[in-house]
Amino acid sequence: MDFHCHLDLYPNARDVCAQAVKKNEFTWLVTTSPRAYTATSRVLGGHENLLITPGLHPELVHERYGELESLLEQIKHAGAVGEVGLDGSKRFQRSYDFQLKVFNAVVSQCAKLGGRVLSIHSRQAVRDVLSILDGHPGYGIAVLHWFTGTASELKTASDMGCWFSIGPAAFNSASGKALAKKLPRHRVVPESDGPFAQVNGETVMPWSSRQTAVLLADAWALPVDEVILSLEVNSHRLIGLIRAAG
Score class of each variant (00 low, 15 high):
104 N>I: 05
37 Y>Q: 00
174 A>R: 13
132 I>D: 02
22 K>H: 15
5 C>Y: 09
57 H>P: 04
57 H>A: 02
94 R>Y: 07
70 S>F: 11
228 I>A: 11
240 G>D: 13
189 V>H: 01
179 L>C: 10
229 L>I: 05
170 A>V: 11
78 A>G: 06
156 T>H: 11
233 V>W: 08
103 F>M: 04
86 L>K: 06
206 P>K: 01
19 Q>V: 11
142 A>R: 02
55 G>R: 08
71 L>I: 03
122 S>W: 01
210 R>H: 15
17 C>D: 08
220 W>A: 00
195 P>T: 06
48 E>C: 06
85 G>V: 02
134 D>C: 08
191 E>I: 04
216 L>R: 01
78 A>H: 10
139 Y>A: 05
148 T>H: 12
114 G>A: 11
215 L>M: 15
103 F>Y: 13
162 C>P: 11
194 G>T: 05
78 A>Y: 04
76 K>C: 04
51 L>E: 03
166 I>N: 00
153 E>V: 13
94 R>L: 05
70 S>N: 14
119 S>M: 09
122 S>E: 05
60 L>W: 14
25 E>Y: 14
150 T>R: 10
112 K>D: 11
107 V>R: 00
141 I>T: 15
85 G>E: 01
87 D>G: 01
59 E>A: 09
53 T>H: 06
160 M>N: 10
108 S>W: 11
227 V>C: 03
46 G>I: 14
244 A>K: 15
227 V>L: 02
34 P>L: 02
118 L>N: 06
119 S>R: 00
62 H>Q: 15
226 E>D: 11
150 T>D: 08
132 I>W: 09
70 S>R: 14
71 L>W: 01
239 I>M: 10
171 F>T: 01
24 N>M: 11
4 H>D: 09
228 I>P: 05
36 A>G: 07
205 M>L: 15
211 Q>C: 00
